[in-house]
């Protein structure tokens, strides 16, 4: 009994079986609330799953999902390259104002910028990519620059005492040494990009995508379809997050070793 009471204490010690029971219990409670809810705003699971089947068979949900994923991954890759270049450049004082400025752009709204980006780009696809890249970059640079600024003088001096010239210090301490952090930031920013997707696909609907599909279903008050699409978005997001976690463990196996459990 005492071990079950631990789950209600701050930093209580729990074993795997207790966590399993706890999670199962919470899922059952949520499922029961959902099943017996009489709210018209919450469609029944059966309605949602039947709508999901219809979306797949009649509305090309898989194709639309692929379009969105391709857009998201492409934008993410471009944003990673740009963000890392800007962030790493902050070790050179000349480039610090640029990173500072890019970081502050996170307060701008994408909708407000869409006109400027429309004028600058030549197709709906490049407009969406540009907006996504912009949206991801401003947050990525903010996180990455903060990590670079947290590097201590001792860490840099350690590399210097090993006869490393300053560029090698940057390579060893900032670029290689912070590789695990880059994966963690990618993970967080992928979630942000996945959230932005609906908005961006709403700005330019020419290519379709799951965001466009969601907005169309929303417009016609097809709540069960909206819920079905949201569940797909959530599951894909979780899978991508898990995938990035696997990549992090693959490329930075040491990162997990430093995580001390509370």
């Amino acid at each position: 009994m005492n071990k079950y009471l631990q789950i209600f204490k701050p930093y209580g010690k729990t074993d795997k079986s207790t966590i399993g029971i706890m999670v199962l219990f919470q899922i059952i409670v949520i499922a029961l609330i959902w099943l017996f809810s009489s709210s018209p705003l919450l469609p029944k699971p059966t309605e949602i799953f039947s709508s999901l089947g219809k979306l797949i068979s009649e509305d090309n949900l898989i194709q639309e999902l692929w379009t969105s994923m391709a857009l998201s991954i492409k934008s993410m890759l471009i944003a990673i390259v740009i963000s890392l270049l800007i962030s790493y450049a902050t070790v050179v004082p000349f480039f610090r104002p640029l990173a500072f400025m890019v970081s502050k752009f996170r307060f701008l709204t994408l909708v407000g910028l869409s006109f400027v980006f429309t004028m600058m780009t030549h197709s709906g696809h490049s407009l969406k990519v540009s907006l996504m890249v912009f949206g991801i970059t401003v947050f990525f640079v903010t996180n990455m620059v903060a990590e670079i600024e947290n590097v201590t003088k001792n860490e840099l001096n350690h590399a210097r005492t090993l006869r490393m010239p300053e560029w090698q210090v940057v390579w060893e301490v900032i670029i290689l040494g912070k590789m695990d952090v880059v994966f963690e930031i990618i993970r967080q920013n992928f979630a942000i990009s996945w959230m932005m997707l609906t908005m961006v696909e709403g700005i330019s609907r020419t290519e379709g995508g799951i965001g466009t599909m969601l907005l169309n279903q929303n417009k016609h008050f097809h709540l069960e379809a909206v819920f079905a699409i949201q569940i797909v978005i959530l599951l894909v997001g979780i899978c991508m997050d898990y995938g990035i976690g696997i990549l992090k463990n693959l490329f930075c196996p040491y990162a997990a070793l430093t995580l001390e459990k509370r």
Binding site: N154, N157, H158, T161, Y254
Partner: peptide, 17 residues
Amino acid sequence: QAGMVGVVQQNYPLFSH
């Protein structure tokens, strides 16, 4: 010059990667 003297700081820094 930096590098001529080996330095071991208090927290024994090593490259964790």
